[in-house]
Design a protein around this nucleic acid. Structure first.
Length: 225
DNA sequence: CACCAGGCAAGTA
DNA sequence: TACTTGCATGGT
């Protein structure tokens, strides 16, 4: 909350550098909240390019509605999302999520997304196959809540710049952002998107790290010149 | 050819 | 509690 702290200033400097380097990311790349939620499940440990193919299959088949996804068999769904990998697991997870929503809120997704943030998060986490990152992605990008999303890139980048311990938990990393930044969904949205962008572009190979807007590996924090 | 990608749950000790 | 393993396609 207190952005006057040293950590808060670090984080805002980090944001400004990434933002100046890349410009607006326009996340989440989806045409509807349901597509966003499906994408969140499909992208678990998977390249986004593969997820796009799977989403395209669902759109072409006109299967991207709560009603239809609820009616489909797991086998039918698995066939369509094949390019996303882990397709049997993910078909089950998508069905679990859709069943949870339809049974409690009906086929109007907005009824679910209007719940208060705590209820939403607990509900999502109660679904088998929805973990903290998937739940928080949905909270931020489908429901517009001020919840920071932590992913593998967040962990990697913070650890490499010695802004967090290598063994930090999901909640610890999330608190680093949420305790030191204003609870602004727009800020959290762009911040997470930029972290992924930086991670994909500069954090994969050590050689690329020299061009990273956050500087090279090691204790050089974004504030260090 | 090997390795990785915007996780999660289940199993083992 | 703290590791380890299975899940699977498509790009580099």
């Amino acid at each position: 909350m207190s952005k006057g702290t040293l950590t808060g200033r670090w984080l805002m400097e980090m944001f400004e550098r990434m933002s100046a380097h890349f410009g607006p990311c326009n996340w989440w790349p989806a045409d509807s909240p349901l597509e966003m939620m499906a994408g969140a499940v499909l992208t678990q440990n998977t390249n986004w390019q593969n997820v796009e193919k799977a989403l395209e299959n669902l759109k072409k088949a006109r299967w991207l509605s709560l009603q239809t996804l609820h009616r489909l068999t797991e086998r039918e769904l698995a066939g369509a999302i094949r390019p996303a990998g882990y397709y049997n697991i993910k078909a089950g997870r998508l069905k679990n999520l859709v069943r949870f929503i339809v049974e409690r809120y009906g086929t109007d997704l907005s009824a679910f997304l209007e719940e208060d943030t705590e209820t939403l998060r607990e509900g999502l986490l109660s679904v088998k196959g929805i973990g903290p990152e998937t739940a928080d992605s949905i909270l931020l990008y489908a429901a517009g809540r001020p919840v920071f999303v932590v992913d593998a890139y967040t962990h990697r980048i913070l650890a490499r710049h010695e802004m967090a311990e290598e063994q930090s938990t999901y909640h610890e990393l999330q608190s680093l952002f949420m305790d030191h930044l204003p609870p602004d969904p727009g800020l959290f949205n762009e911040f997470h998107a930029l972290i992924v962008r930086v991670g994909k572009t500069y954090c994969r190979k050590k050689a690329d790290c020299g061009r990273c807007p956050l500087g090279r590996w090691g204790p050089a924090s974004p504030l260090a010149e």
